[in-house]
Design a protein around this nucleic acid. Sequence first.
DNA 1: CACACAAATGTAAACGTTTAGACTTTAATT
DNA 2: AATTAAAGTCTAAACGTTTACATTTGTGTG
Lengths: 338, 338
Amino acid sequence: MSTIKDVAREAGVSIATVSRVVNNGPKVGEKTKARVLSIMAELGYRPNENARALVTQKSKTLGVVIPDLSDPFFASLANGVDKVARQNNMQLLLSTGLITEESERQAIRLLLERRCESIVVHSKKLSDEEIIEFANKVPGLVLIDRFIQKIADRCIWLDNEEGGKIAARHLMSLGHQQLACISSKYQIDDPALRFKGFKNELTESGLSLLNQHIVEDEPNLQGGEMATQKLLASDTKFDAIFVYNDAMAIGAISTLEDNGFRVPLDVSVIGFDDVLLSRYSRPKLTTLHYPIEEMAEFAAQLALGNIKDVTAQQISSGYKYIPRLVKRESTSLHSFSK
Amino acid sequence: MSTIKDVAREAGVSIATVSRVVNNGPKVGEKTKARVLSIMAELGYRPNENARALVTQKSKTLGVVIPDLSDPFFASLANGVDKVARQNNMQLLLSTGLITEESERQAIRLLLERRCESIVVHSKKLSDEEIIEFANKVPGLVLIDRFIQKIADRCIWLDNEEGGKIAARHLMSLGHQQLACISSKYQIDDPALRFKGFKNELTESGLSLLNQHIVEDEPNLQGGEMATQKLLASDTKFDAIFVYNDAMAIGAISTLEDNGFRVPLDVSVIGFDDVLLSRYSRPKLTTLHYPIEEMAEFAAQLALGNIKDVTAQQISSGYKYIPRLVKRESTSLHSFSK
DNA sequence: CACACAAATGTAAACGTTTAGACTTTAATT
DNA sequence: AATTAAAGTCTAAACGTTTACATTTGTGTG
C-alpha cells in the first residue's frame, strides 16, 4: 500500500503539500493540486488512519460496549449509535463484553487503547465505583440503560417503574380488576422496577395483587408459557396480565389460547419493550415501547459532546425516558364492562 | 493519558524495557518487571493501539461491511463475525454501507484506511469488477452472500435455488399438488433464484404452477398479507404456498386465517430464512434455515486466513451453503391424503 | 583475577501522518 | 527598480510504539 511519501516523490513535491491536498488544506496551487490528485488516483493512495489518529489524537471512532449482537435489543442500540457515527463521519467500533464483570472491563479498556474518545456503555456487572472511575478518565463516556447519581448527566435510562404504572393504569382503565403479573426470575433491576411500579399503582387505586397471581420464569417464549401454566394451575380467576417482556407475553397468549381463553376477549395481555415480534404476533401485542434506538442515538450525541444545554433536571436525574403505551390488539375492555 | 515514556521515566528504565514488559517480551529481569508493572498500574497506563498498529502494520481489527444493523439478518451476520473477532483478540469495526453503490465503496475504503487486513463484505450494488479489484488489493477480503466466479475461493454464499427445490420437494412429499408462490417484488437475485428452483422442481415432477398462483409484493408482513389477498382473489384453489421469507409467510398465514382457512389443515405455508419470528408465530413456521451466523463465522475465519485446505470444489464454486428444511407446524399432509 | 558468555537493559530508527514555522516565488505597489 | 505582501512550498519535529543492534551488568570458569 502506497504512502504519502510515494505520492510526494512521484509528484515532485514535499509530503507537506500532499498532506494539504489530502485534507483540502488552505494554500495549495491549482496545478500542483491537480497533479497530486492525479498521482494519488494512479497509485490508489489511501491515507493511513492509524498514523493520522496518532498525530491528531482523535480516532474518528465511536465505541459501543454491549454484551453481543445476538439480542435484537442490543442490535437496535448499536444501530442507533452507528447512525450517529455515520452522520459524523465516524465508524462504529464494537466491543462486546458478554456477561462477566471482567469482560465488561476489558471491553472498555480495548476502546481506551484505541483512544476512542466517545463511548456508549451498556454495563450491568461493573460496580458504580468502577464506572465512575472510567467516566472521570474519559469525558466522552456515556452510560445507557443505567442510572448512577454521581454521573447523572451522563446517564440515559428508561423509567421502568413508570412503565409498570402506565401498564397498570391502562389495564384498570379497561375495567380489569383481577390482575396478574408475569415477571422475570432474574434478579436484576428492570423486572423488579417494572413490577414495583405496577403493584404500587394498583395499590393506590385500591386493588390488590394476589400472591398466586405473581409468577416468575425465564424471560423468553417458553418462560411465558410456563408462567402462564402456573397462573392457570392456581384456579383463581384473572382477567388481565402484565408481562415482563414481549417474548414472554407471546408465550402467555399462546398458552392462554391453547387452554380455551381468548385474548383479549377473556384475558387482556400487555407486554413490554415493543420489539419487532410484537407486531407479528396474533393478536398484535399491546405493549410499552422502549425507545432504545432513539435513546442510543441521543447517547451517542451526548458522548460526542453535541448536546449543549444541560438543565438542573438532568444534573439530578439524568436523561430519563418514559416508555410509551402502544395499544394494539391484545388488550380490550373487560367483558363485564362491555 | 500517560504514555510509555511516562512509565519509563517513573520506573527509571528505557522505553524499550517497558515495551518488553507490556508485551511479555523475552529478557526482562524479575524485579524490573515488577517495578514497571506497578508503575503502569499506578499511572493507569494503556498502550496506544494506534501507535502499535502503525509500527506493527496490523490493526487487530476485523472489518465488516453491511447495509446497517436494523435488519436482524445483518445483525446476525455481524454477530457471527464478532464472535470470531473475540476468539482472536480482535475487535469488530463496522462499516455501514446502506444501499447505494457509492456508500458501499466508501465503507470498504474506510476499512482500508484503517489498514484493516481482514474484511467481510456484504455488497449487492458494487460491480463484480470493482469487487474483484478490491479483493486483489486486500488478500483478507471475503465476500458473503454473493458469488463471483473469479474469486470463487473467497465467496461464502447460500444456494437459494436449491432452497426453492427443497421447499418444492417438501410440499410435494406432503401430497400437495395445487401450489402457489409468493415472491418479493424486488429484482435482486435471491427471490429470482428461490422461485426458479421451486418452479423447476415442480415442473420436473410434472406439476405446473398457474400464473395466477404467482404473486409478488413487498418482502414484509404487509406484503405477505397483500399478496395473499391477491391469491385469494383469483378463485382458483391452492393447497400450499411457498413464501419468499418468514415475515411475508406470517402475513400470509394471518390473512389466510382471517379468511377462514386453517393453516396447515387447509393450506400449508413454508417460509424462508428461519428468523427469530418463525419460532414465535402461531402456528410455528416451517421454513428453510439460512445459516447466516454460521456462514459469517466461517467467512471471518477465511478472512483471517485460518482456513487452510482449499479443495478444487471451492475453487470452482466457493463455499456454498445449502438451506436446511426446518419442519414446524405450518405445513402438514394434504387433507385428501389423510 | 582475568575471561568469556549470558542476561538485562539501553539507543535509535522506523512506521505514516500533521503542522508550525521557515523559506521561496510571484504579483502588486511605490 | 526596489519594496512589500501574499501565496505557495518545504523542513523538521512530533505523535507512541516496536525492535534490531549495541552496550552494560552479572556470573561462573579456568
